[in-house]
């Protein structure tokens, strides 16, 4: 290929690169710079210092928010995988092949409701007079309604609901890529059903499990809406703390430092998982 045609590749990619630079890279650099400023009273002091990072290091409220976030997200990842794996496995092995597409499509239907609306729907279901409480009261299993909405449990339920769909998709994709003669060969060689599952199917489906876990972690830890709408009030997570600085307190420097903290956490998890982040999709 001639030199001019190669240059043409650059020219064609230039608008997207420019957009990425102006709308993403420059803002990230500015966030970094802003995180080195500090807020004193009602003014932002624009001389560089590590004041915000020292605060992150020592402030108990920030620690609590970080810990809450990590706990909620870890619990969400584990429960989502535990529910999604058997779900995907049943779809891949028990449901007849020609129905699998439809079943999957139905399984991710709520995915197409808006995020805000989905969180609101959980509020609806979990409210004091909501569907769950009313059902339990009517069947006599309860005498007093449970406080479900506005708790950590509610946040976890709403998160798990969304990420079961995500994980089911990635795990299903992995399960479908296992050549059917591998488990058959294991059975022929005398392995029991359980052994075949533990030693053949589960290890081969790990890529889907890891991609699902990674997506769940990254998307959940940055999410403001779900904890804000359904978790509401009892405890604060990292994105809520960031939004609090932005909207109520006007402390952009601290918000910038906390945003970078969020970025670093995601990058660290990515670095840990990067090697395994493939669904084995052939191009």
């Amino acid at each position: 290929m001639s030199a001019s045609r190669r240059q043409q590749g650059w020219v064609l990619a230039a608008p997207a690169l420019l957009a990425t630079a102006v709308l993403f890279l420059v803002p990230m650099v500015l966030v970094l710079l802003t995180s080195l400023y500090r807020r004193e009273g009602k003014v932002t002091v624009t001389e560089f210092s590590l004041a915000n990072y020292e605060r992150i290091w020592s402030d108990a409220t920030i620690h609590a928010a970080l810990l809450n976030s990590l706990e909620v997200v870890a619990i969400t990842v584990v429960i989502s995988l535990l529910i999604a794996f058997p779900f995907a496995y049943v779809i891949a092995t028990v449901v007849p092949a020609r129905w699998q597409g439809v079943v999957l499509l139905l399984a991710v239907l709520p995915f197409w409701t808006s995020y805000v609306v989905r969180s609101y729907s959980w509020l609806l279901v979990l409210a004091k007079n909501g569907v769950v409480n009313q059902t339990l009261l009517a069947t006599g299993l309860l005498t007093d309604p449970l406080q479900l909405a506005n708790t950590r449990l509610a946040t976890v339920i709403a998160f798990v609901h969304f990420f079961v769909m995500v994980c089911a998709l990635t795990i299903y994709a992995s399960l479908r890529q296992i050549p059917p003669n591998l488990p058959l060969a294991a059975r022929d060689l005398g392995a029991s059903g359980w052994t075949t599952f533990w030693r053949v199917i589960l290890p081969l489906s790990l890529p889907g499990v890891i991609v699902g876990a990674f997506l769940t972690f990254v998307l959940a830890i940055g999410d403001f809406i779900t904890p804000q709408i359904v978790g509401g009030g009892t405890e604060i997570l990292l994105p809520q703390l960031i939004m609090l600085q932005v909207s109520r307190l006007g402390d952009l420097p601290l918000a910038a430092a906390l945003s970078l903290l969020l970025l670093v956490i995601v990058a660290a998890v990515y670095a840990l998982a990067a090697r395994h982040l493939t669904l084995g999709v052939r191009r």
């Binding site: 709308l23 993403f24 803002p27 990230m28 500015l30 403001f224 939004m243 910038a256 969020l262 970025l263």
Partner: peptide
């Protein structure tokens, strides 16, 4: 940009 939370992207543009 795909690897960064929407919150951080939005915040970056707000700072700009």
């Amino acid at each position: 940009p795909l690897g960064v939370s929407y919150l951080v992207i939005g915040f970056g543009l707000l700072v700009v």
